[in-house]
């Protein structure tokens, strides 16, 4: 069993248990100046979302990423932010899911999938995804990112839209090396 099906299985098991959407297994690593992030979304790919996607409505998530210095009490700890939009759309004629992934509004990946499991994995699991570039980063400092996901907006009283997000999750800290 490959890594992806394994993660998918884990995800499905976790999803079966129910609960609030949450970012799990967030870790970062450095590949030169590139900061690679891996994480998965738990309890985010709901039946409701799948129904929306299969009905043909473009639906998805927005992952918010923030790069920080490891200085919790410093005011200049925040270094940057990125938005990762994952939108899926179903073509009932060809029976394919089209998944578009945009990084800060720029399309970085477009996939055509036929299986629901592949769809969920492509929308909720990210491995070694280049989130930021640490140009000019200091070796003396450690860096981390934090991630949360913004789900489809909810509604109060049936018509007042409410923003739904998960909690921020912080990654491990990395120190650039020359």
């Amino acid at each position: 069993m490959g890594l992806r099906p394994a993660l998918l299985l884990v995800g499905l098991l976790a999803g079966a248990g129910g609960g609030e959407p949450a970012i799990r297994d967030l870790s970062i690593s450095l590949d030169g100046p590139r900061l690679l992030a891996s994480f998965r979304l738990e309890n985010g790919f709901s039946d409701e979302l799948l129904a929306r996607i299969e009905s043909g409505l473009p639906s998805g998530f927005v992952y918010e990423l923030e790069l920080k210095r490891d200085r919790k009490r410093w005011s200049d700890a925040h270094l940057g932010a990125a938005r990762l939009e994952v939108v899926a759309m179903y073509n009932a004629v060809t029976r394919e899911f089209l998944v578009n992934i945009k990084h800060d509004g720029r399309l970085i990946e477009s996939r055509t999938l036929q299986e629901r499991a592949d769809l969920e994995a492509s929308m909720t699991q990210f491995a070694a995804f280049q989130a930021f570039t640490l140009d000019g980063a200091s070796e003396r400092e450690r860096y981390l990112i934090r991630v949360r996901v913004e789900l489809a907006p909810g509604e109060v009283l049936g018509f007042i839209p409410v923003r739904r997000t998960s909690s921020w999750v912080e990654s491990n800290k990395v120190r650039p090396r020359r």
């Binding site: 409701e48 129904a51 929306r52 299969e54 009905s55 043909g56 409505l57 179903y90 009932a92 004629v93 509604e155 049936g158 018509f159």
Partner: peptide, 21 residues
């Protein structure tokens, strides 16, 4: 036929939103 069913499903998904609107 496929599109009609898809449209129906879209309406169904957005049923509450329709009601609200």
């Amino acid at each position: 036929l496929i599109q009609s069913y898809q449209a129906y499903r879209q309406l169904e998904v957005q049923k509450s939103q329709f009601k609200a609107s």
